[in-house]
Design a binder for these strands. Structure first.
Lengths: 345, 345
DNA sequence: GCGCCGGATGATAGCGCTACCATCCGCACG
DNA sequence: CGTGCGGATGGTAGCGCTATCATCCGGCGC
């Protein structure tokens, strides 16, 4: 029964990328591959002499380990994903920066995903992210679809939600109460004598919470109607100008305005000046975020300070602690906020 | 010679993560693993019937492919790294956003690295990035160490440098000439009658190029001395205020100021107003970047428009084309800039 | 009817690392 | 002097995919 096909089953399988590998370094150093691996990941397991032999070989070859391979072998990608609606709105920048820095110090790299403000896009992005098997996911201002939340939970990846305090977090949470922040601003303005407060606000979810807190506190203070002008996200200085213009045109008696972001507030200040309205005498302007320009605006902007940096650091700590197997005593951290009274209100 | 250790050599090698794999899906769909792989990556290689069987199995299990494994097998990580000095300065945001969007559409994910403005940090970051074997690297405002450039080139990864036009790019380049931009602003201001121009500028490399272009053009116009006030990166509104204050205190006769960023210029406008200096009558203020607040400032800010979005898109196209094996006819793209004359100058 | 072609599917062998033991060796102890 | 122990190093077997053939099968030309 002669077989027509050649008995040499040869050359199935693979190519070979020809790139420098750990094995090459091991050969040069005269040790086994696993020893090189240890030299890179657990240097204190080796004797000083072995270690320096390996390090010299690494330096001589210019070897850079392949963490894709390492990730596959160890199921640790050392990647952390951060999902934001859009990076173009600078609200979360400080948080992202702090996050990147803290992660970097521990050898993690940040993967950035922009989900936009739509659920379909978010869910698609989520699959792309999960496919990379990040060791952690940081959510800021995104992921409200139940389907997405379920997939995330199912993936078994540590999740940190930020910039809000929701009653039922997927996993871990660091933020503050938007409603309380809104309420605090309303109380501040009424206490300062405002009798006719108005609102200029982005139309996103959290800004809505702040609005609600503001309106309810105003009601408690005897102000039953609070006119509001909404603008699309992301907010701009120009949007703030135009929104204040519309608000004042419709309600000339408004004597204070709570803006849902500092940049909107800066727009409001600009429009007030252009119209010759004196701030704060005729109009009090209150911002949100305490961005780095708030204190130097003219007049200096009263605002709500959110420590975005601390949020980023806490989010990183959550992920790092979880991955190190350390217990997480507090899975919900309220970082609060602070009213900063300056000249504008 | 009895052996004390059990002859069952059993259980070396591996654990088993217990997670859902392509093989599980294949079993459920009644096909081979490779067919599932094809269904996900080259769906048109399969018959409609096979494809839908696989897709149903994927949907039923909620399977998400592991691209870490895929990346190792194919040497394609589908990750692109973007390195910036810091994300906190919003200069590159538009570029990063456009980049992320364009990459996302092609199935690539962005990895973000913040190199700071120091070479040591940059080089360390670079190794962390290369270790992830990105399919491309986008550089904006970083990586000037020869050592780093060499390592990048050696890694054989497509590299796109952006936001500048350097004579010897590592690989591909998209940007504009900072010197020409500075020169154009100087010519504009002199043409408008400024006889005593000054500069408020960040102390980074590119801002330095713009400064040089400005000073040289001013010299050609007969202005031999241009006082300058430098501020650290990243720039802020407050830094702009204080820098203009210092500039005017030292040189009260300055009648125009070129700011190296719009936010500095906004600070200059603010300081001018606080001092009762009329803009543009007594002081012309020129910005750089045409950020989204420039047109709505009061007075509206004259500035240099850079299409950061186009830069991001071109950078993505470079990487994508290169990875698709398409020829790159033009490895250096000059996107230019545009002077936007508004009320402030 | 046979060989051939091309499209669909499958078997096999890695990609470059690390987890999991196993082994080796020197030393303290009984 | 054998035994046990612990620290350093090594061998092996995958991690979950995909590249590279190989195979199968139906249809077509001669």
């Amino acid at each position: 029964m002669p077989v027509s096909r050649p008995p040499t089953r040869a050359r199935r399988g693979r190519r070979t990328t020809g790139s420098l590998t750990l094995t090459d370094v091991a050969r040069l150093a005269g040790v086994s591959p696993i020893t090189v691996s240890r030299a890179l990941n657990n240097p204190d397991q080796l004797t000083a002499e072995t270690l320096s032999r390996v390090q010299e070989a690494v330096a001589r070859t210019g070897y850079v380990p392949n963490r894709i391979a390492g990730g596959l072998a160890s199921s640790r990608s050392r990647l952390v994903a951060a999902l934001v609606p859009t990076i173009a709105s600078p609200v979360f920048l400080e948080t992202i920066q702090a996050l990147t820095d803290a992660l970097d110090a521990e050898g993690y790299q940040l993967m950035l995903g922009q989900g936009g403000y739509g659920e379909a896009r978010e869910d698609k992005l989520l699959d792309a992210i999960i496919a990379r098997r990040p060791d952690g996911v940081i959510l800021t201002g995104v992921m409200h679809s139940p389907e997405g939340r379920k997939r995330l939970a199912a993936a078994g990846i540590p999740v940190v939600e930020t910039w809000d305090l929701t009653p039922t977090p997927i996993d871990m949470l660091v933020g503050f109460s938007h409603e309380k922040a809104g309420a605090a601003v309303a109380e501040y303005l009424l206490y300062r004598g405002s009798r006719r407060p108005g609102i200029v606000s982005a139309d996103d979810y959290r800004a809505g919470l702040r609005r609600r807190g503001f309106v309810e506190a105003a009601a408690r203070g005897g102000v039953t109607e609070v006119p509001a002008e909404l603008v699309p996200t992301p907010t701009t200085l120009g949007a703030g100008r135009r929104a204040l213009a519309k608000l004042l045109d419709a309600h000339p008696d408004v004597d204070s305005v709570f803006c849902s972001s500092d940049i909107l507030a800066l727009g409001a200040l600009t429009e007030a000046r252009a119209r010759g309205i004196r701030v704060p005498e005729a109009l009090r302007v209150f911002g949100f975020g305490d961005n780095n320009f708030a204190a130097d605006a003219h007049p200096a902007l009263s605002t709500v300070r959110i420590d975005g940096n601390a949020i980023g650091r806490q989010a990183a700590r959550f992920v790092i602690d979880r991955l190190a197997g350390r217990p997480i005593p507090q899975r919900i951290v309220d970082l609060g906020f602070k009213l900063i009274g300056r000249a504008s209100a």
